[in-house]
Amino acid sequence: MLNYTFHWNQAFKALPQMLDGALVTLQIALLSMVIGLALALTLTAFRLSGNRILSGFATTWVEIARNTPALFQIYMAHFGLGNFGIHLSPYTALLVGIAFNNAGYLAENFRGALKAIPDTQTRAGRSLGMTPVQAFRLIVLPQMLRIAFLPVTNQMVWAILMTSLGVTVGMNTDLAGITQELNARSFRTFEFFALAAVIYYIIAKLVTLAARLLAARMFRY
């Protein structure tokens, strides 16, 4: 039968420490999304450029990001680059790995969103005297962001959860890292990880809620 006595007190005592870790988690996730979005827009522009080298580069990036484990991507940023003399701290390596992954998924989302906007929208803009850049910025982009908004939100949640992979490269200041250390010291595995899971859950839910409120404000049509 159950041969384990729960010691929740120990876990709750560590709560402030874990919440500090949660802030680091949220910070990495947010940063990785900002960088990921910028990279994804660039990759999308590369893919639309008609230049074979640029679009080949972007496609390769997207293929690797979407078809290999995120864990390997973070490993590569830490140990892989280390082999070439580029030594990234666990924090930076985690950020680079997740941003790489985000960029790949988001670029694919953007591509899908762009396909959903008829060419006639651009044509209508051009026929009013807009330059191609104006037509894209004023007409296509706002519509693309709306269509891509939900997938972007999903990716943000995914980025939060992916930060937990940082423990594999020695990350010890985020929620997963701190939980792992507390566990190693006390062997109260269930209590600490259950509490951490609840915190992850709450963060993810709050992000989704915030996104929904933001969407309701931004997209009134």
Partner: peptide
């Protein structure tokens, strides 16, 4: 055009104002 191509993300007023503002 046959398909009127309204800009769906803008109100009627904004649809009509856009080009005069940005192009002219």
């Amino acid at each position: 055009f046959q398909q009127w191509n309204a800009f769906p993300h803008l109100t009627v007023l904004e649809n009509v104002m856009l080009a005069p503002r940005k192009v002219l």
